[in-house]
């Protein structure tokens, strides 16, 4: 046991020394202060993120990070969402066949009283907070192409609302209002499909019209003359970025709520269902 700990310590000290030495020999590109400029690649992004002078070479969004996340490197983000999706599916697979539905009906009468959840002050405040949180999170998500924020940021902020209701009241409170596993899974799938279809929209256009087009294309390119309109009624919507943000907002909010509903399934129920299960 002690040998193992000593081994861990020694290797960690080596790691620290290596990383420090690497940093002090400017392996991160700079030492001791950051670079005085940005790397060339970054200047490409900064220069072309919203540059109407080069209509074939811009993402049409003032927000360079969102532009990179959804346009320049959209593939990463699709699969980042896929990782989150697969994590939720993995959790669902661990919880397969277990649902709160039966408990929710038996708890119909017992949980509305003053005995459960936090105090009445917290409950009243949570009721008032819910629409405010949704308003703020929607603002964060829908302005993702203009100001910091975006689908994930907004969606995770929106998930505070059901989470607070879950913690302050109880999970049965949510279930009685129709926020249960299946609607949340549907919401999540709808969001993911929105992302997916937006990513492929231009390719379909290209296939129909017979011109070249790329997967994840947003604005027209030199060799791919179709794109999603960047302006709608003279308002900047940055083409696909708005659609991506909206879809991701729904998907993330649904996903988080789903995770927390799954986490709040009582242990007795799970144990009673898992015990005596057949396996290979």
């Amino acid at each position: 046991m002690n040998v193992k700990k000593a081994l861990i310590l020694v290797s960690l000290i080596i790691l620290v020394l290596t990383l420090s030495a690497a940093f002090t020999s400017s392996a991160l590109g700079h030492y001791p202060l950051p670079l005085s400029g940005v790397r060339w690649l970054a200047s490409w992004y900064l220069y072309t993120t919203l540059n109407p002078q080069y209509p074939k070479f811009t993402a049409m969004s003032p927000e360079a990070v969102t532009a990179i996340v959804w346009d320049y490197r959209g593939l990463d983000t699709l699969f980042e969402t896929a990782v989150f999706f697969l994590a939720i599916v993995g959790a669902l697979a661990l919880m397969r066949g277990i649902s709160l539905k039966s408990l929710a009906e038996s708890n119909e009468t017992t949980t509305e009283g003053a005995g459960s959840g936090l105090s009445l002050i917290s409950k009243t405040a949570a009721k008032l907070l819910t629409p405010l949180i949704i308003a703020v999170s929607a603002s964060i998500a829908l302005h993702g192409h203009l100001t910091p924020g975006g689908g994930f940021q907004g969606g995770s902020a929106a998930a505070v609302a059901p989470l607070l209701l879950l913690v302050i009241f109880s999970v049965y409170f949510l279930l009685r209002r129709g926020i249960s596993e299946k609607p949340m899974l549907t919401l999540r799938t709808a969001g993911l499909l929105g992302i997916y279809l937006t990513a492929l929209a231009v390719v379909f256009t290209g296939l129909v019209t017979g011109v070249n087009a790329y997967v994840f294309q947003n604005q027209p390119k030199f060799d791919a003359p179709v794109g999603i309109p960047a302006y709608l009624f003279n308002t900047l919507v940055s083409g696909s970025l708005f659609l991506f943000n909206l879809s991701e907002y729904l998907a993330v909010a649904g996903g988080f709520t789903l995770v927390f509903i799954l986490l709040s399934i009582p242990e007795e129920l799970v144990m009673s269902l898992i015990r005596g299960e057949e396996h290979e």
Binding site: V89, T189, Y196, V203, L207, Y214, V215
Partner: peptide, 24 residues
């Protein structure tokens, strides 16, 4: 003619097929 669609579409379209499966 859409350029090299078989390369670009394979992986994204497969994950799309996975996306709808839990809902189905």
């Amino acid at each position: 003619m859409v350029y090299l669609l078989s390369v670009g579409l394979l992986v994204p379209s497969l994950i799309g097929l996975a996306f709808v499966l839990p809902l189905i």
